[in-house]
């Protein structure tokens, strides 16, 4: 564990807490893409198949349970909670993400560390996470003004993988034969997808204005 990875995990945890706060405090999920939440639930379920088979540390197990539990709880809330579900932007959240799921799974069948059930699903989860934010970014552009908590949620979600890139650089420099091409390349693609969001987020922060993404 290094400071970059810990910062990444904490930033990821903060993004989850901000989203839970937004939904719980405002009893609304307006501006949140259910499709991105469902993709993230798939990411965590596919990545943490080793949850019960391999114990790495209490921290690792607890964080996996938190990410799986929170993503499923948010999907449930947005689909079935009688108050929250009314504020879901169903007509704006129309990204056909099964194409993404199919492409990522196909890529995982071709590109993986080892051809085993667990490794193929692990690679699938890495590729899927790289593109999971797309429905959310499309929804933000369509829904125009973005409320503060939603903007902060997306910001922290994007920032966490940037910390992981620093973690991989650090580990590459300090650990012999450390190579994680699948994670690194996917992490770079994932963070790059946030580039324009980070730009407009910075502009809104500098001008102390509402976050506006160009349509």
């Amino acid at each position: 564990m290094n400071i970059f990875r810990l910062a990444g995990d904490m930033t990821h945890l903060i993004s989850v807490l901000v989203l839970l706060l937004k939904i719980y405090a405002t009893k609304s999920c307006s501006g949140i893409s259910l499709k991105t939440q469902e993709l993230y639930a798939m990411v965590f379920l596919a990545r943490y198949l080793d949850l019960f088979s391999d114990f790495i540390s209490l921290y690792n197990t607890v964080m996996k349970l938190v990410f799986i539990g929170s993503s499923l709880a948010i999907v449930w809330c947005m689909r079935y909670h009688r108050v929250v579900r009314r504020s879901y932007d169903r007509e704006l959240d129309t990204f056909r993400y099964w194409i993404l799921v199919g492409a990522c799974f196909t890529l995982a069948l071709v590109l993986h560390e080892k051809f085993s059930f667990q490794e193929v699903f692990w690679a699938f989860s890495i590729y899927l996470e790289a593109v999971a934010i797309l429905p959310q970014l499309v929804l933000l552009q369509r829904s125009g003004n973005v409320d503060n908590l939603t903007g902060q949620y997306v910001f922290f979600l994007g920032a966490y993988r940037a910390f992981y890139i620093l973690n991989w650089i650090y580990r590459y420099l300090t650990e012999p034969r450390f190579t994680r091409w699948i994670s690194c390349v996917s992490g770079l693609v994932q963070t790059a997808l946030y580039a324009d969001f980070f730009y407009y987020y910075f502009i809104s922060w500098k001008n102390n204005a509402k976050l506006q993404l160009p349509a």
């Binding site: 995990d9 990821h12 690792n60 964080m63 560390e113």
Partner: peptide, 10 residues
């Protein structure tokens, strides 16, 4: 354990 080393990250 059976896992390859990269599963130590979340």
């Amino acid at each position: 354990s059976s896992i390859s080393d990269h599963h130590d990250e979340l």
